[in-house]
Each structure stands twice: as structure tokens, then as C-alpha cells.
Design a protein around this nucleic acid. Structure first.
Lengths: 208, 208
DNA sequence: AATCCCAGAGAACAGTTGTTAACTGCATGG
DNA sequence: CCATGCAGTTAACAACTGTTCTCTGGGATT
């Protein structure tokens, strides 16, 4: 099997991507559980039945969207947590990176925030699995740092989860400021930075 | 105007409550944005048109549900944060209280977690407003404590927000264990406790 | 060059949706 | 005791939904 696609499969993937894009846009003002199959095909400009050539259901489409929205983030996570500099510099850099990501992919961030606790079980599970992977990756990076000496495995995972959740909370806060002015975004960044700082201080004094 | 209701208004409130109860149950496996008006009236056992006597739309019903789910929690918040005992005792008590609340009102907790970032703007705003109130109340209680000496107003609010978000995260984690066994719930409680502990340590060393 | 495959089109289905209008019957206030 | 108000009913509407079956056209395979 080759990674070179014939014009046949290439066209199929193109249509599939059109479905994902259209769905993501429609989902900015509704939830996945109310997204209709016909609604999506109408937005793409194909017949309703074409949908079944790509997905079993809208829930299936949702799971594919989870991969698209979170699958590409893993590399970023690692490099951010393991970045050079002291604690304060890493925090500033992380908050800035979240802000940029929200500006670059607002629909992705909105989708994850909305469907993490949404009404479609397979999608919730897919998001949960990805977030668990994130936590494991963050934990692995934290373990490499000298500040983690003497830490137990479960405490490291606890801290990693705290960071991951904080990342999501910060992301959705930035999301709410997207239609506002720059000053608002600055305020969110400052609060998020202080939250991370407090967590880092807690980490530093965790033992003993 | 009297607070004693005639049988007329009493029956109306009864029906209204039936709408809220039915909707809350239907919302356990879907989102508000996919909740149909007819679906609700069918569950209650009344004609579709009866709905309009109580709500303009399902979004309106959602806002009413926010009041029901969060309105009664304010008293609890205050007494919990300002409870006697040292930091560790207060954390244990808070986590236990969250666990009990989730067991007592799982549908309420699920609704808030789901619709906080859900697809219905008025509901998102209603939840956001209530959570802001919570944060203000927690801040007021924190300000009374001796540990908060020297703290700025915005730092107190930052910490309060951190606690409120942590409360929600913990709640939704407990929610996922409701169909599981006791051991699972115990594990969630332990992780949540350690998270709160780390935040408390960060708080203690925040200044200087 | 002849064949097969399959993404997408088209039409039709039974069932559902929100909203309207005009109604009925009963508790309420004068 | 009678007139009014109003919660809930009934019937009907156009529009929409997911899913099935049949068909078509052109890239892929031999």
C-alpha cells in the first residue's frame, strides 16, 4: 500500500475534509447532539446520502473532529513543558502559546470545550482518552525536571492533570475574549499566569 | 400581593416544575440545543402548546434550570469555605461535600457541566453569571481568613476562581464514577484532595 | 479496450419538528 | 352569581429529519 493517492481517493479525502470543516463551523453556535446530517451536507453542497460514504453518523464525524482538534497538539505540549528557562519564563511562554492557539484555531478549541462534557458519549470518551494521553505526556516531561525529585508517580500525574485542566480553562477563557478588545485578552492572560504561578509555588513546597 | 397561592397558581407552578424535571431527565443523554419542545411536553404528558404558557423557548427553560441547579448552592459555599478547622480539615470537608452533592443531584451537576460551554448562549451567560457570583462569595470568605493578610483584591479573586473551577472539575469527575464502584469514587476523592492541598500550599507561600 | 468499483445524485418514505389559531372548562374577583 | 382570565386542548400547517433503494458517471484494474 502506497501513500500516494490516486485522484479517486484524493477527491474522497477532499470531500471528507469539507465535511469536517463545514461541521466545525456549524458547531460554533450549537452542540454536536443537535447537528443534523442534512444540515452538514447542505453546507458542503452535496446530496444527503453522500454523508454515509464517509461517516456512520454525526457522532462518528464528531470523533473524527476530536482527532483533528487534539491529535496535532501532542508535539506542542512536550516542547512547551520541557522548554528552557526558569519556572516564570515557562509559564509566560505556555500562556502565550495557549493564546496563540486559540486565535489560530478558535473553532477547534470551542468544539473541545463544548463536547468534553457534551451529550454524545463516543465523543466524550474520545476527548477523555486524548486528555489522558496529554496528562501522561506532561507527567513524563515533569518527571525529567529536577524539581520533581522525590515525587511519587501518582502525585506527578495529579500535578499533570492540574496543568492540563488549567490549560483547557485558560483556552476557553481566551475564547470568550475573541470578540472583545486586546485589553480583555491581556487581563485573561494575567489571571491565567498568576494561577499557573500559584500552582508552581505549590509544587515547589509540596514535599516537606 | 400574597405569598399564599390559590389552587390556580399552585397548579401552574406544579406543571412548570414538571417541565423542569422532565427536561433535566431528558438532558442526561443529550444537550440543551437538541432538546425539542415537543419532546418535553410528551414526557410531561401535556399538549405541545401548553409549553408556551411557561416558557418562550427551550433556551428559556434552560435559564430556569440554571437557577434551580445553582441558585440554592450559595449558602452551602459560604459555610464550607468559612468552616472551622485547619486547612486540611476544610479540604476534606469540601471534597466530601461535593461528592455528596453530586450523589444527591447528579442531573443538576451534569446539566451545569454540559451547558457551561454548551451551544445555547443565554444559558452559557446565566451559568457564567452564577459562577462569577460564586467566585465573589468565595473571595469574600477568603478575605476574612488570617492567611489572606497582605493579599490584593485581584489575587484573592484569582484564588477564588481557581477554587470554583476546581469545584466544578471535581464535580464532573465524581459524576463519571456514579455508575462505577465505591473504590473509583475513593480514588477521585483522593486526587481531588491532593489538588486542593497543592493549591492551598501555593496560597500559603504566595507572598514573599 | 473491456470490466469493475464506488463516490455521489436523485427520489421517495414515514416520522418529527415549531408555531398558529380557535376552543374548552374551571378558578377567580367584582 | 355572573363575567372575566387563563392553563391546557385540539387540529392543522409547512418544513424538516434520517434512512432506504436505485441509478449514474468516471477513475481504477486487468
Amino acid at each position: 500500500m502506497s501513500h500516494i493517492l490516486g485522484s479517486r481517493q484524493a477527491q474522497k479525502q477532499k470531500t471528507r475534509q469539507a465535511f469536517l470543516d463545514a461541521a466545525l463551523e456549524l458547531l460554533e453556535e450549537q452542540s454536536l447532539s443537535s447537528l443534523g446530517l442534512r444540515e452538514v451536507t447542505r453546507a458542503v453542497g452535496v446530496a444527503p446520502t453522500a454523508f454515509y460514504r464517509h461517516f456512520h453518523s454525526t457522532a462518528d464525524l464528531g470523533v473524527a473532529l476530536v482527532e483533528e482538534a487534539l491529535g496535532s497538539l501532542h508535539a506542542m505540549i512536550g516542547t512547551t513543558v520541557s522548554a528552557a528557562g526558569d519556572s516564570e519564563q515557562r509559564i509566560t511562554r505556555a500562556v502565550d502559546l495557549i493564546a496563540r492557539h486559540v486565535e489560530a484555531y478558535p473553532a477547534h478549541v470551542r468544539f473541545i470545550a463544548r463536547e468534553r462534557h457534551g451529550g454524545v458519549q463516543p465523543v466524550r470518551e474520545a476527548i477523555g482518552a486524548q486528555l489522558a494521553r496529554f496528562a501522561e505526556e506532561v507527567k513524563a516531561e515533569l518527571a525529567k525536571q529536577p524539581e520533581s525529585e522525590g515525587w511519587g508517580d501518582d502525585d506527578l500525574l495529579m500535578l499533570a492533570g492540574l496543568y492540563v485542566d488549567q490549560m483547557l480553562v485558560t483556552g476557553s477563557l481566551f475564547l470568550e475574549t475573541l470578540e472583545g478588545d486586546e485589553e480583555e485578552r491581556e487581563r485573561v492572560a494575567r489571571v491565567a499566569t498568576r494561577r499557573m504561578r500559584l500552582i508552581s509555588i505549590g509544587r515547589r513546597h509540596w514535599l516537606g
